[in-house]
């Protein structure tokens, strides 16, 4: 349709306070609704358009460049206080196309589409030839490293047996040959010292997550170092159910629910 009066768009200045405010609302939405991985912070606003909307309001169409932080999605640290992943740790950037509606002075996220990609290996090696490089999280070396790290963690646990939830990132270090892994675990209803069959252990209804970092040397019988940060337990949140459906299963074997999923439906309002 031809553009009528008032239906066109205006190119905004990417560094305008209002554009930055819209970008921040989008970033908050992205970080609140992460299914896993790490929180991101704004690095650069690539494009900003303002479209008028009928019958009322304005639509902000933004292209955002983000950078991965070291805070896991389950970490409650505000993203602005999270350190950006350094280039020597093999940084990861995000490219996001977002649309926000501004009405009555309030922003509401309409759509978000993000794609993340790591820095190129060549760039990291140029910066430091011995820096560990990111590798696929499902590679054999990584899977073995995570298993070894989790076994070491559980061997020293005086309480619950912890189960793997997610492998968040993995790097291969050349000297000495080691695998650096970052992963999420959750407490189960089994006692670590008494577990005989881990497959029979169930995640607790009130989720107790921990984020772990481990260095696993490739040399056989070398010492594995693993440190985990426990997060506050996440209370069981009843999910709104459509009429005629039964209440959600919240037993120990119920599927995991991130609190972020609950806020997704409503959308953030500034």
């Amino acid at each position: 349709a031809p553009h009528g009066p008032g239906l066109g768009y205006t190119q905004l200045n990417c560094d305008d306070p209002e554009t930055e405010q819209a970008a921040q609302v989008a970033l908050d939405y992205i970080n609140t609704n992460l299914a896993g991985g790490f929180k991101h912070v704004l690095n650069q606003i690539d494009k900003a358009e303002l479209w008028s909307r009928r019958p009322a309001g304005e639509i902000y169409v933004l292209e955002l460049d983000t950078l991965e932080t070291t805070c896991h999605a389950l970490d409650h640290t505000p993203p602005e206080k999270c350190p950006v992943r350094e280039r020597m740790e093999h940084a990861v950037e995000g490219d996001c196309d977002v649309q926000l509606l501004k009405m009555d002075g309030q922003f509401r996220v309409l759509s978000v589409k993000c794609h993340s990609s790591p820095d190129s290996a060549e760039d990291v090696i140029k910066l430091c030839p011995d820096c560990p490089l990111l590798v696929p999280r499902n590679s054999t070396k990584v899977v073995h490293a995570v298993e070894a790290a989790l076994a070491a963690f559980n061997a020293h646990s005086n309480g619950s047996y912890f189960q793997l939830v997610e492998v968040s990132r993995a790097q291969l270090a050349p000297l000495p040959p080691s695998v650096y892994v970052e992963f999420v675990v959750a407490a189960t209803d089994c006692v670590a010292k008494e577990v005989t069959d881990p497959t029979k252990c169930n995640l607790l209804a009130e989720k107790q997550y921990a984020f772990c970092k481990a260095a696993v040397p490739e040399k056989v019988d070398a010492e594995v170092s693993v440190t985990c940060k426990m997060f506050q337990t996440q209370p069981v949140v009843p999910q709104p159910q459509p009429e005629g459906t039964s209440a959600p299963e919240v037993g120990p074997g119920a599927p995991m629910t991130h609190q972020a999923d609950v806020t997704a439906a409503a959308g953030p309002v500034l």
Partner: peptide
Amino acid sequence: VVVKPGGPSLAAAAVRPCPGRIRHFKI
């Protein structure tokens, strides 16, 4: 360069509204 009176100034034309500033580093 001929600038018409009342047209955009050269300074205004030089302003690049986007992309915006880089806050950390560019990959």
